[in-house]
Amino acid sequence: MSTLASTLIRWPNRRPRAFLLVAAALWWGLYQSLIPASEALVAALPLDRQSRLGSALQFFFYDTPKVLLLLTGVVFVMGMVNSHFTPERTRALLAGRTEGVAHVMAAALGIVTPFCSCSAVPLFIGFVQAGVPLGVTLSFLISAPMVNEVALALLLGLFGWKIAALYLGLGLSVAIVAGWIIGRLKMEAHLEDWVRDMPKMSAGYEAADTTLADRVQVGLAAVREIVGKVWPYILAGIAIGAGIHGWVPQDFMASFMGKDAWWSVPLAVLIGVPMYTNAAGVIPIVQALLAKGAALGTVLAFMMSVIALSLPELIILRKVLKVRLIATFVAVVAGGILLVGFVFNAVL
């Protein structure tokens, strides 16, 4: 092994703070270069950027490294956090609480985490490792992408605080009730074996026993373990989402999203599930659909299905959940989203 390679391998142990600063700067630089790099790649190809294929490729070239960067960053940080806090501390957050309060706390935590559905999966794994009940972890996993500051700011700016508050209340209700129902079904056996078998921290572990270098090594190990398992699912999911992004026109969707027909809300959910984006990415679509006369409840059901039940998310979840649990998750969450759509269409 060369001297340079040996130095790089030992760097996180010898100078962990310097390693973290350089890694963060490199991560940020790569993230900021995603848009110009993806546009340059498409521009270099012999096709029209505005064509369906050009749009799909730009989506794929941008979102693939974006999701992988986000996933890597989240997994690394959560690996360090998990090395610092014992399972007992994590459970202590919910200790002495009723089951209902635990679900509310998990859902509320999801609101303030700026992660897309794909990035929330490592946090879900961390919850399971910490011994948090499955239903509570799913309350978090649902609310993290679905109820967030971007969606709330959009609704506040377009429709006022009453509509934003209604969305917040209904979105939290979906996350809390869905997690509670799945928790009542006792489906822990339907986690994938490798997730259930992941080692738990020993009861006697304390944060004082580890140095910063130790926590960095745990974070790097978490990246190798988790990202190494899910990256093929990410590529497959984004490829599917890019195809839908490039070939499904907004006019077609808007024509089916009025509130006169009862089936518009279920259809909007079915259309939204195959897509992939986060709340920020779906805002232009939501605005365009509303401008073309689509009903607010129908559009919100579409938006919630895109960011809470997207096909890429389900593909990634398949790595950690067995089919029966995924089917239950989809059925319960979809039921809640349908309720939100119907309520909005009825009251507005």
Rank of each mutant, 00 (worst) to 15 (best):
A334D: 06
R184M: 14
L168G: 00
A291V: 12
C116S: 15
L338H: 10
G169M: 00
M105P: 04
S83A: 15
G179Q: 02
E39N: 13
A106M: 04
G96P: 07
R17A: 15
P133A: 08
L4K: 05
E99Q: 00
M105A: 08
A331L: 15
A288G: 15
T3N: 05
L289V: 07
P65H: 04
Q32R: 04
Q50A: 09
T210D: 13
P199Q: 03
T90C: 11
A5R: 03
F329H: 11
L289Q: 14
S264I: 08
T90Y: 11
I238C: 07
G293Q: 09
P16F: 02
I142C: 09
G126P: 13
Q217G: 09
F61P: 04
H245K: 02
A106N: 01
P284H: 06
A92P: 03
A130K: 01
Y62P: 11
L123C: 10
F329G: 13
F140M: 00
L309P: 12
S6M: 02
A25V: 12
V81C: 10
M253T: 03
G281R: 03
H103K: 01
P284T: 06
A236Q: 03
S310H: 14
V269R: 01
I234V: 14
S305A: 11
T90D: 12
L154M: 05
F61H: 07
R89G: 11
L267K: 08
G100D: 04
A120C: 12
S117I: 04
V101S: 06
P16T: 10
R89V: 08
P87D: 02
W180S: 10
W27R: 00
W263R: 07
L141S: 10
I142M: 11
H190K: 01
V195F: 14
I337Y: 08
G179I: 01
Q287E: 15
M80H: 07
F329P: 15
L138N: 09
G73C: 03
V22A: 15
A242Q: 00
V136I: 07
F302T: 09
F127T: 06
